[in-house]
């Protein structure tokens, strides 16, 4: 009984790693959303959303507070399941062609494929090393060498290795805000997902730390598909390839970032981008 359980645990990351070895194919839509309706209890939070998020690019969701961009993001790894009274009314979200609301889809496996970085950096009150290794440990990885390897690789990936390599075993809570957020990013990439969701990752950071994180995002898109929710228009402009603008639970417009920022089709988009509301 236990053996089966553990075997399953071990096969997973390999499957995930396999995905990295394939040649990046940017033309393939990674996430497809079809006529999605989403409810918080009686509140109709997302209305008839359809869009496609391409692989290995950075897609930014922008829009005023309460427009539903974070809600949509949390749909991708079914974090909304944790909130009572939420449900998908209509439509589908497909990741790699699989409908993720299907009962056959395991949320655990989904979340290992779709990593997430939160608005407020939330490192666990453990050492930096334990924070990064956590994702693998819960999958049953005990091999110390492998863990060391992954921790170093992830920290390097998050451009944090040089800053923390001498204090890997001190508490992550002792780091600065920007470092903490990068620990969270390193933590997310340690389990080697194919998609990373970022929910306003820089909103609590100072400009210098923000710049570092943005740089990192730029680096990460080589290996991962990134969806970022942001309040900060400049940020969206700086680091995203695609931009989607939401307003009152509806997708107003989506397109290449330069196009959205320079020549939007919709009037509302233009008003928002030029700072007339929001």
């Amino acid at each position: 009984m236990n053996a089966t359980f553990e075997t399953r645990m071990d096969t997973l990351p390999q499957a995930a790693r396999g995905s990295q070895q394939g040649a990046p194919d940017t033309s393939d839509p990674m996430i497809e959303i079809d006529h999605l309706d989403f409810y918080y209890g009686a509140n109709h939070a997302l209305r008839d959303i359809s869009l496609q998020i391409p692989g290995h690019q950075v897609t930014a969701f922008i829009g005023p507070s309460g427009c539903g961009k974070s809600t949509l993001l949390r749909c991708f790894n079914r974090m909304n399941d944790l909130i009572e009274g939420t449900r998908i009314g209509n439509g589908q979200i497909r990741i790699h062609g699989i409908d993720i609301s299907d009962p056959a889809v395991d949320t655990i496996a989904l979340r290992r494929q779709v990593g997430m970085v939160f608005q407020k950096s939330n490192p666990f009150p453990k050492s930096i090393y334990e924070n990064i290794a956590y994702g693998l440990q819960i999958q049953g990885v005990r091999d110390r060498r492998r863990l060391d390897e992954v921790v170093e690789k992830s920290l390097r990936g998050a451009a944090l290795w040089d800053e923390v390599k001498d204090r890997l075993h001190t508490s992550a809570l002792g780091l600065s805000g920007g470092q903490q957020q990068r620990v969270c990013i390193a933590r997310a990439i340690a389990v080697e997902p194919s998609i990373i969701l970022m929910d306003e990752p820089c909103s609590a950071l100072d400009p210098i730390a923000t710049a570092k994180v943005e740089e990192l995002i730029h680096e990460l898109k080589k290996n991962y598909t990134i969806v970022i929710v942001t309040h900060n228009m400049q940020q969206a402009g700086r680091c995203s390839d695609m931009t989607a603008f939401f307003y009152l639970g509806q997708l107003i417009e989506m397109g290449k970032t330069e196009k959205i920022f320079t020549n939007p089709v919709q009037k509302q988009t233009e008003d928002y981008i030029s700072g007339r509301f929001g």
Binding site: L82, R111, R112, G115, P125, Y134, Q137, I138
Partner: peptide, 27 residues
Amino acid sequence: VPRGFREGSLALGATKWQAIRTNVLPY
């Protein structure tokens, strides 16, 4: 225990019980 501990853990693909056992109960 802050919500973030649970969410952070679940977002990494922990099962509910793993999240509770490793990131809620100890604190």
